[in-house]
Amino acid sequence: MRVVLRVLSALIGLAVAAAGALLVLEVAWAWARPDDAPLAVPWPRWRSTLSEVDWSSDGVRWTAVGLVVLGLLLALLAALAGRREVRLADPAPGITVVTSPRSLARLVGHHVRAADGVSGAAVTASARHVRVRATSRMRDEATLRPRLRELVGNVLGGLPLVRRPRVSVVVDSPKDRR
């Protein structure tokens, strides 16, 4: 997401710079030689088109809707490009330790898969929430779920996390389908 943000920023910056350069070029050209044709931008044609279209026309409405959607997308991208690191406690003043949500999920998944009766697990994690989805052939959800919750709680408790994430466990077992 951050790479997209950076590339998009560079492209928008270049586009703004190019538009500014064209504006300067055309205005200076038209000022110096008012009777000549424009250099690169066919602005007299644009002017005649714009003076024929009125505000309530369909083209203007769709363009406006497009602007709103594009603006919302850009704002959404900017909002999503925030930091997602999981903070660990500072071991000493002046030292900040973080880990990635993916690493936290890997660590939890490693312990869950090693647990008795679990045949597979998928874990997603963030600084606030750890979600475990385990599959089991031998145990049903009622017996396995509290054990896994406790296990994940212990794993997280063993880490020097600044903020203890909430844990939710779902067990998918053929025993529950009978």
Binding site: S9, A10, L11, I12, G13, L14, A15, V16, A17, A18, A19, G20, A21, L22, L23, V24, V27
Partner: peptide, 13 residues
Amino acid sequence: LGLLALVLGLRWA
């Protein structure tokens, strides 16, 4: 305005 856009856009990029 055009010069401003040119300078700020290049700076941002």
